[in-house]
Amino acid sequence: MTKLYKHWRDYPVSDWRWPDFSPQEIACRGTGRLMVVPEAMDKLQALRSKLGAPMIVNSAYRSPEHNRAVGGARASKHMEGIAFDVRMDNHDPDTYIAAALSVGFKGIGTYPKQNFVHVDARPMRASWGKPFARRRATPKFAPEEPREADTVAKDGQAKATLAGLGGAVAASGGVVTGVGGLDPVAQYIVVAGFVVTGVALVYLFRKRLARLARLAE
């Protein structure tokens, strides 16, 4: 049963059964009035569920005065509350139109320059407008690519190498703490040994990283 409300805020929230849309989205942009045709809204919700992606509604119900103000057709289906203009920012137009027809929309209008598609629930099939240039749908977020098992293993090897070097450096630090009690010659010998050890560790570390880099290619 079609219902008309003076303002979309007057619609009982508990009666709204289309979870992916709101009364404000469907209301007249110029006056705030809301006409709800359940059969048309059911088709709109079915289309949203079939697509599995958000729909940006440019225009749904229009009051007669607002329809005149925006240059709408004299017999526009928007004034009957059964038409919806949806932007194609995140949809492939061909896929969108096929889905709209499959859920029962009969009227299809394409507006590539304005980047939206009009659908309505008229009883007979009708179509108009120019075709969109062929393109692929643009997802909102790019899916995260799965990591390869060997990449995970290589990361583990690198972490193990770093941990080993860290342990060696820590151990060296503990020995250096006790050097202060030795005579100058002994201190020189110990420090020189640490320098040689440090250079060797750096060389081994760089060699290990180079090997891991070759494995990753």
Rank of each mutant, 00 (worst) to 15 (best):
A40S: 15
M41L: 15
D42M: 00
K43L: 15
L44W: 09
Q45A: 10
Q45V: 11
Q45P: 14
Q45C: 09
Q45W: 08
A46H: 00
L47S: 03
L47N: 04
R48H: 15
S49G: 05
L51W: 07
G52W: 08
G52P: 13
G52K: 00
G52H: 08
A53V: 11
P54M: 03
V57N: 11
V57Y: 07
N58W: 12
S59D: 10
A60P: 15
A60M: 10
R62S: 11
S63W: 11
P64V: 04
P64Y: 05
E65T: 11
N67R: 07
R68F: 09
R68N: 06
G71W: 11
A73S: 13
A73M: 13
A73K: 15
R74C: 11
R74F: 12
R74S: 12
A75E: 13
H78T: 07
M79Q: 15
M79G: 06
E80C: 02
E80A: 11
E80G: 09
E80K: 11
E80H: 12
I82E: 04
I82K: 05
I82V: 15
I82Y: 06
A83I: 04
F84M: 03
D85S: 01
D85W: 02
R87N: 13
M88P: 15
N90L: 03
N90Q: 12
N90A: 08
H91W: 06
H91G: 04
H91C: 07
P93Y: 06
D94F: 00
Y96D: 02
I97P: 10
I97D: 00
I97F: 04
A98I: 03
A99M: 07
A99F: 11
A100Y: 09
L101C: 05
V103Q: 03
V103N: 00
G104S: 08
F105C: 01
F105K: 00
K106E: 14
K106T: 15
G107L: 12
G107V: 12
I108C: 02
I108S: 04
G109P: 13
G109W: 08
G109L: 02
T110S: 12
T110A: 01
Y111W: 15
P112K: 01
P112I: 05
P112H: 03
K113E: 12
K113V: 14
K113S: 10
K113Q: 14
Q114L: 12
Q114T: 09
N115Y: 07
N115P: 12
N115M: 12
N115A: 15
F116P: 14
F116A: 00
V117C: 07
H118M: 08
H118F: 09
H118Y: 12
H118W: 10
H118I: 06
V119Q: 00
D120T: 03
D120Y: 04
D120F: 01
R122E: 14
R122V: 14
P123Q: 03
P123G: 07
P123N: 02
P123E: 11
M124L: 13
